[in-house]
């Protein structure tokens, strides 16, 4: 038991929280944008799967270019989520149904293509002994070696080896740091740009937006597409920056957690960072405790995120509180001009 109360254990939990929280962070941010625009997208899990397979395949055919894979993953996620946009915005279908169907479709398509191309059994193409993103600061060192900036490279190596902090914060792949960067960007986008307040208005009061010449449905399409891109990016994290290859159901239900995290984060991007790392931390703690043979059944740790989301939702219930905390008023309601 003593092993648990050490700095190195804490560092590995923290490091795990960050590593496991990042694939939750991207889809959560995406879903926040989407829901703030008034569209509930339960299909995150399916979009992530599509993003992961597309990202993996793109990187594979591009000779192991993980950046390319990441972009294609995001675009594929965005494109795939347009199915949801079409069904719910243009055809005014029920958003829950469409979302659940999107998950099933995502599983179906990735299984079909994955099995057909035998992607899941493919021997890995390696790039500098590593597939995809492994360690940002190591990658950075190589980058600086190339252009003869040894001191910086040494600094990076030093940084990684700092007691505690090095292990917890500086031994991650570039995705993690992009995630940290994206959170303030999304915050600025949502609160400080014209598009941001337009999105808010479309999610809060679409008829107001309509009277001001804002094309409500067009904005909503955009929100769903952006959300899908983030989810696709989160999906691409799995093969490109974590597992190293693609397997069926690689996201293992994390898309659903992302949907829950949005509620946990009160629809605010800055809270999403906290929430994602918290949930990532729970998972990391569970894994780390397991390796130390601590007798806490992993099932109970595993259900914690779901249970805590229900608890949060119960606290938020009762309309008024939910309103003040930030659930968009028009969430889940298709917009249609009255009377016509």
């Amino acid at each position: 038991m003593d092993e648990i109360f050490t700095l190195s254990f804490l560092a590995s939990v923290l490091s795990g929280a960050i590593r496991l929280g990042t694939p939750l962070l991207f889809p959560t941010l995406g879903e926040i944008i989407c829901e703030r625009g008034g569209v509930l997208n339960l299909g995150i899990e399916g979009i992530m799967l599509v993003g992961s397979l597309a990202g993996y395949m793109a990187a594979f055919y591009a000779g192991g270019d993980a950046w390319f894979g990441m972009m294609v993953g995001a675009l594929a996620g965005g494109a795939f989520s347009l199915i949801h946009a079409f069904l719910t915005i243009s055809l005014k279908a029920n958003q829950v149904i469409s979302g659940v169907m999107l998950v099933l479709l995502g599983i179906g398509i990735t299984e079909f293509i994955g099995t057909a191309t035998k992607m899941s059994q493919q021997i890995l193409w390696t790039w500098k002994n590593n597939w995809g993103f492994k360690n940002f600061f190591k990658d950075l060192s190589i980058f600086f070696e190339d252009i003869n900036l040894i001191p910086l490279s040494e600094f990076a190596t030093w940084l990684q080896n700092v007691e505690f902090f090095g292990k917890a914060f500086f031994q991650h792949n570039v995705f993690v740091y992009i995630g940290w960067l994206v959170v303030p960007l999304v915050w600025v986008f949502l609160y400080k740009t014209r598009m941001g307040i337009t999105i808010t208005s479309v999610g809060e009061s679409p008829e107001t937006a309509d009277t001001l010449g804002i094309r409500v449905n067009r904005i909503r399409y955009l929100c769903v597409f952006l959300g899908g891109m983030f989810a696709g990016l989160g999906g691409a994290y799995f093969p490109l920056a974590w597992v190293g290859n693609w397997q069926s159901m690689i996201t293992a239900g994390r898309g659903w957690i992302a949907v829950a995290l949005v509620i946990f984060a009160f629809w605010k991007p800055q809270r999403a960072l906290l929430a994602a790392f918290l949930f990532g931390g729970m998972e990391a703690l569970q894994i780390n405790l397991q390796t130390k043979n601590v007798p806490i059944p992993s099932s109970f740790m595993h259900m914690l995120p779901y249970l805590s989301t229900i608890v949060v939702l119960v606290f938020l219930s009762g309309g008024r509180v939910l309103k003040r905390i930030g659930a968009p008023s028009a969430l889940g309601v298709p917009y249609e001009r009255g009377g016509g």
Binding site: L42, V96, G253, W256, V259, A260, I263, H302, M303, Y306, L307, T309, I310, L313, V314, S317, G318, G319
Partner: peptide
Amino acid sequence: LNTNEIITTLMLNY
């Protein structure tokens, strides 16, 4: 409490 049943039933699956 008017808690959204979609999310709760979904979470309870897991």
